[in-house]
Design a protein around this nucleic acid. Sequence first.
DNA 1: CGGGATCCGCGAGGATACTG
DNA 2: CAGTATCCTCGCGGATCCCG
Lengths: 134, 134
Amino acid sequence: MTITVSGTHIGVPAQLPSPVPAAEYETCPVTEVLRRVGDKWTLVVLVLLGRRPYRFNELHRAIEGISQRMLTRTLRTLEQDGLVDREVHPTVPPGVEYRLSPLGTSLLGPLSALADWATTHHDEIAAARARGGQ
Amino acid sequence: MTITVSGTHIGVPAQLPSPVPAAEYETCPVTEVLRRVGDKWTLVVLVLLGRRPYRFNELHRAIEGISQRMLTRTLRTLEQDGLVDREVHPTVPPGVEYRLSPLGTSLLGPLSALADWATTHHDEIAAARARGGQ
DNA sequence: CGGGATCCGCGAGGATACTG
DNA sequence: CAGTATCCTCGCGGATCCCG
């Protein structure tokens, strides 16, 4: 399927199959990226690496509450998707640096648009929750 | 904390506490929005409602694979956050229409920026995966 | 230092049945 | 038609221990 974009709003082509095919929706690039960046730790890792390179344990200390396992998994996934570059220095003890790839850096722009929207409209969401219950 | 934005990239203020506080990260508006829109069905619901209003079962038929329960939950959450308006027509049988609120519509813009990025760079991600394994 | 291996709890999400 | 209620599965994410 691939959800398409035209101008300033998300558009689904007029000839969109109805119903939206389940298989194609789940493999849709937009869906994939949102689910990835919507997981628990990816955002803060991207934000930190967007500032400067980090060593593994340095990241671990910089993100309160993240487990070793999830930091590893988050970094591995980002690396596999080409968003993060991993650089090993064969010293003793070993030093591993993580940095955003150009692709990863290019993601920060659109991500910022969403972040901007979130901070701008956060009070409206809070107000709606206060009215509606929960 | 609230992840801040400056210009075209996500920035964390220089005085960002290190480590990033766990509690503040989880209640950060940006984190919340990303987790919401990153769940399984929110995106496609937003996209469809972005085109026109839908009745409940109409949506149910339009989205292959979604369970009744998850459609209800997704719509309820979107409604509570003020992104979707629910309109009940007291007819027999009852008719319920869902439409995007102005707030929900305003989300489509930044969401499109991310969707645009995803479609543009999908091949690079696929290539990275092909290289890296998995 | 930078992980991998293992075990486990919990909540997202699915299936089914029932209702105003 | 538009849900609610119930039960169940499965994978995300945490905790802990171990290793080169």
